Simulated assay, not measured.
Amino acid sequence: MQEFKIENLSTELDEKILNKTNNKTKPLGSLGILERIACKIAKIQSSLSPEIKKPTVVVFAGDHGIADDGVSFYPKSVSYQMLYNYMQGGAAINVFSRQHGIDFKVVDAGVDHDFEPELNIINRKIAYGTKNYRFESAMTKEQCLEAIEKGAGIIEDCHKEGCNFIAFGEKGIGNTSSAALILSLLANIPLEDCVGRGTGLDQAGVKSKYELLNEGLSKYTGKTDDALEVMTYFGGFEIAMIMGGMLKAAELKMTLLIDGFIITSALLAASKINPKVLEYCLYAHKSNEKAHISMLNHLGAEPIMDIGMRLGEGTGAMVCYPLVKSAVQYFNEMASFEEAGVSEAVEEAASH
Score class of each variant (00 low, 15 high):
Ser265Trp: 03
Thr232Leu: 05
Phe261Ser: 02
Thr232Ile: 06
Ala249Met: 09
Lys272Cys: 09
Phe234Val: 08
Lys248Gln: 14
Gly244Ser: 06
Thr255Glu: 09
Ala270Phe: 00
Gly245His: 05
Ile258Ala: 07
Ala240Leu: 11
Gly260His: 00
Leu252Asn: 12
Thr264Leu: 08
Gly236Asp: 13
Glu238Gly: 05
Ile239Tyr: 15
Ile262Pro: 13
Glu251Ile: 05
Ile258Glu: 07
Ala240Cys: 14
Glu238Thr: 02
Asn274Pro: 00
Ile239Glu: 15
Asn274Ala: 02
Ala249Gly: 09
Asn274Gln: 09
Leu256Gly: 04
Gly244Trp: 05
Tyr233Val: 11
Leu268Arg: 06
Gly260Pro: 00
Gly236Ile: 08
Ser265Tyr: 04
Lys272Arg: 14
Leu257Arg: 03
Phe261Pro: 02
Ile263Val: 15
Glu238Asp: 15
Ala249Leu: 10
Leu257Phe: 02
Ala270Val: 00
Ile263Asp: 11
Glu251Tyr: 07
Glu251Pro: 07
Gly245Cys: 01
Ala249Cys: 10
Leu267Phe: 01
Gly244Phe: 13
Gly260Trp: 00
Ala240Met: 10
Ala266Ile: 08
Ala266Asn: 11
Ser271His: 05
Ala250Phe: 07
Thr232Cys: 12
Leu257Asn: 02
Gly235Val: 05
Lys272Thr: 05
Glu251Phe: 01
Lys253Ala: 07
Phe261His: 04
Phe234Leu: 11
Ile263Asn: 13
Ser271Lys: 01
Asp259Leu: 04
Ala270Asp: 01
Met254Asp: 10
Glu238Leu: 04
Phe261Glu: 04
Phe261Ile: 07
Lys272His: 11
Gly260Gln: 01
Ala240Ser: 15
Met231Gln: 15
Lys272Ile: 07
Lys253Val: 02
Ile262Trp: 15
Met243Cys: 15
Thr232Phe: 09
Ile262Met: 11
Leu247Gln: 06
Thr264Asn: 10
Thr232Arg: 14
Met243Ile: 06
